[in-house]
Design a protein around this nucleic acid. Structure first.
Length: 507
RNA sequence: GGCCUGUUCGUCUAGUGGUUAGGACAGAAGGUUUUCAACCUUCAAACAGGAGUUCAAUUCUCCUACAGGCUACCA
């Protein structure tokens, strides 16, 4: 292990925190929040943020299940100072590559009689557990294998008998630690049993590997979900047995689903990747996540990342579990879409538009490829305050790029209305034709024309625009009409008015 | 079942031994308006329950209820 000196040169503090996901194929909302808080704390203190992969369960983890987690972290802007792909003086950073380390430390425990081999089969244990449950008792390992002399155990292992290693939990006494959020936690050791630290396949279990790694990686503050609060005493057993000193513990309140139960797939999307695909901005995601269990003052809800780094503090973390409120996230995303500079949002929309056109009926496309970018520039101010996600943008603006079709309902929409849609369309066409060149075909000229037309026809502007809106947009809702016409251009505008006129002919 | 933890508007939360208990989302009403949004104004909305400590408890203590977590050779 290298000295801290090299790190101290790079960092302003000794704070070392880590995010330790297990490769599940995606980054969970709760995990993202944990990662964010660790990262913010590191940034705030000038400390080091470490990424460690907890992949000790080979049965469940395949290699490619970690990449999406890296992607999501990077997307959120949570980059790590040490970890996979980054290196560091405390590696390797995948637990699957640290097996020999756990075996070594387990061996020390064995030699010190602080751990012992266990030959009980999983089936046998399950039976005992079930029997205890049936009697309404809590199961605690009966130390059946504790008495087996080490030499005999080694002999049996040499003969091929499968064995696990259990840590010896003290019979009496208490484990006590200070959680920075939840305060003093005290547990009587009689509630702890001799749990397995090394499986029969030679790999460590979570509570062992996490303690060994946090100690060896010199983690100063363990920031993780409250679901680990109950595991902490078990890990402290390891720290004690191995003579490691304790890090600070900061347990974050859980994130629950809308109904108050643990956030899971049935609550809808729980992966960060989903929100990214849905068109949520990382700014909104980070801001929202930061507010789940943390708050700064009584009024501020919008925080940029630099502001979060500046204002974040462990003291602001609450202890009450928070429900994940999709509506508020949506609102916040909409807020960022309409507030952030257009150049930040435009590429995201442009990508969606190009993907959309890629799959669109070519005969309906009304725009040249090299005109898309400029058109989006003009559309942006019309929709930025109307969408809450980027993915939603397509449904709002596609008629700017492909021709419209009217369904039966729209064709008959004005059938028995007091106004004559035919008349409105014809008069509008005449009026618009009067506008000279394309340059004059702008929203203010159009607005003037249409208002004048209303007067001439003695008809309310709402009535008139309703007709035009359906004709131009094939919908009862559209971006502001005059701007829309200007963007579509004179030809396309006239084409659509005529098309709708024809569509309602005889209706 | 055992152990651990939590409980302020529907939701995220601020807050204090004496406050009109504050903000944000969502909701309602109104304004603005070419639709829809956005924006502005206003309204409604909370200290889980019960004891105790105290001159005074939402705030401190205990109990109950409810909720969540852990209780695996998962993490």
């Amino acid at each position: 292990m290298k000295s801290m000196q090299t790190l101290k040169n790079k960092k302003d503090s000794n704070v070392r925190v880590r995010f330790a996901p297990s490769p599940t194929g995606f980054l969970h909302i709760g995990g993202a929040r944990t990662a964010l808080f660790n990262w913010l704390y590191a940034k705030k203190t000038g400390g080091t943020f470490i990424l460690r992969i907890e992949d000790t369960d080979t049965a469940r983890h395949q290699e490619n299940t970690i990449e999406p987690i890296f992607d999501s972290l990077r997307w959120l802007g949570i980059n790590w100072d040490e970890g996979p792909g980054k290196g560091g003086d405390y590696g390797p950073y995948r637990q699957s590559e640290r097996t020999h380390i756990y075996q070594d430390y387990a061996q020390r425990l064995l030699d010190d009689r602080k751990a012992y081999y266990c030959f009980c089969s999983p089936e046998e244990l399950k039976e005992k557990r079930d029997a205890a449950a049936k009697k309404g008792l809590s199961f605690k390992y009966d130390r059946k294998c504790f008495g087996i002399p080490l030499e005999e155990s080694r002999e049996r292992i040499k003969n091929g008998e499968p064995s696990a290693i259990r840590i010896l939990a003290p019979d009496d006494g208490t484990i006590e630690f200070d959680d920075m959020i939840y305060g003093k936690i005290k547990v009587n050791t009689e509630n702890l049993d001799d749990y397995v630290i090394m499986r029969s396949n030679g790999l460590p279990t979570y509570n062992f590997s996490v303690a060994v790694d946090d100690a060896l990686m010199e983690i100063t503050d363990v920031i993780r979900g409250e679901d680990h609060l109950s595991n902490t005493p078990k890990q402290i057993l390891v720290y004690r047995a191995l003579g490691f000193s304790l890090p600070g513990f900061i347990h974050l309140p859980m994130i629950l689903g809308k109904d108050g139960s643990k956030l899971s797939k049935r609550h809808g999307a729980v992966s960060v990747g989903f929100y990214r695909e849905e068109g949520f901005l990382e700014e909104a995601m980070v801001n929202y996540l930061a507010l789940l269990g943390w708050s700064y003052d009584e009024k501020t809800t919008i925080f940029s990342v630099p502001e979060l780094i500046e204002k974040f503090s462990l003291e602001g973390i609450g202890k009450k579990p928070a429900r994940f409120d999709y509506d508020k996230l949506l609102w916040m995303n909409g807020y960022y879409i309409r507030t952030l500079p257009a150049e930040r949002i435009k590429p995201l929309i442009e990508k969606r538009v190009r993907d959309f056109l890629e799959n669109a009926d070519r005969s309906r496309i009304i725009i040249k490829t090299d005109e898309i970018s400029e058109r989006i520039d003009r559309i942006m101010p019309l929709i930025s305050m109307r969408i809450k996600t980027i993915s939603e943008s397509i449904s709002r603006i596609y008629p700017f790029f492909i021709s419209v079709e009217y369904n039966e309902q729209l064709k008959e929409y004005f059938k028995n209305k007091e106004i004559s849609a035919q008349n409105v369309l014809e008069k509008t066409i005449d009026s618009i034709k009067e506008i000279g060149n394309e340059e004059d075909f702008n929203s203010s000229v159009l607005e003037e024309k249409i208002h004048k037309l209303c007067e001439d026809l003695d008809i309310g502007i709402r009535k008139l625009t309703e007709v035009l809106r359906i004709a131009l947009w094939a919908d009862k809702v559209s971006p502001p009409l005059f701007e829309t016409m200007a963007i579509l251009g004179k030809d396309e505008t006239l084409k659509r008015l005529a098309k709708y006129l024809k569509a309602i002919d005889g209706k």
